[in-house]
């Protein structure tokens, strides 16, 4: 197939761009509320003594808790020319637990952009990775997300 020209050159050239760093205090109450919201009653998320008895600094966060941690947005020009977006899923990698009291610094990188033709017409895929680092300079997790963008069909 011929090379795609639906991806703006400026977007192609933005691959590798990083967001600013953002620091987040990981609060015990925020972990508890998150665990309650997902209805996961694992005591590791709420019982400090129990978590400490297993060697953790404090209660730990559920695997997807970092989704609630703030990240600085990528620059405005890193966006699809298409107006509609669906969540194409994500990949989490975990290296170290996140505990209440931690300070987690986030930084997001624009990893890749490509397009594909499918059910929704031409679709542009934006791939971003957020890296989560704690106060001990340990990389605790990364999340790579895929956003699928397309132009909604006009109804006749």
């Amino acid at each position: 197939m011929s090379e795609s020209n639906t991806i703006p050159k400026s977007l192609q050239e933005a691959i590798g761009t990083e967001s600013k760093k953002l620091s987040n205090d990981i609060e015990k109450g925020a972990i508890r509320r998150f665990a309650e919201a997902i209805e996961d009653n694992n005591p590791l998320y709420v019982d400090e003594n129990y978590a400490k008895s297993l060697g953790y600094r404090n209660v730990i966060a559920p695997p997807t808790f970092l989704r609630s941690v703030q990240t600085d947005p990528l620059p405005d020009h890193i966006k699809s020319p298409y107006s509609a977006v669906v969540d194409g899923g994500s990949v989490w990698e975990y290296f170290s637990p996140v505990c209440a009291g931690d300070i987690i610094t986030t930084i997001t990188t624009f990893e890749n952009v490509f397009d594909r033709d499918g059910r929704l017409g031409n679709m542009i895929f934006l791939i971003k990775t957020t890296r989560y680092t704690n106060q001990l300079s340990e990389l605790v997790a990364t999340q790579t997300t895929t956003s699928i963008t397309y132009e909604p069909k006009k109804e006749n």
């Binding site: 997902i38 695997p63 994500s90 975990y94």
Partner: peptide, 23 residues
């Protein structure tokens, strides 16, 4: 995604580690 995380963490208990979770 959280539900898929819980099905794993409930199963592996306190000794196992979740290294990667894709959705």
């Amino acid at each position: 995604n959280a539900f898929l995380g819980q099905v794993i963490t409930d199963w592996i208990g306190n000794s196992g580690k979740l290294k990667m979770l894709e959705v």
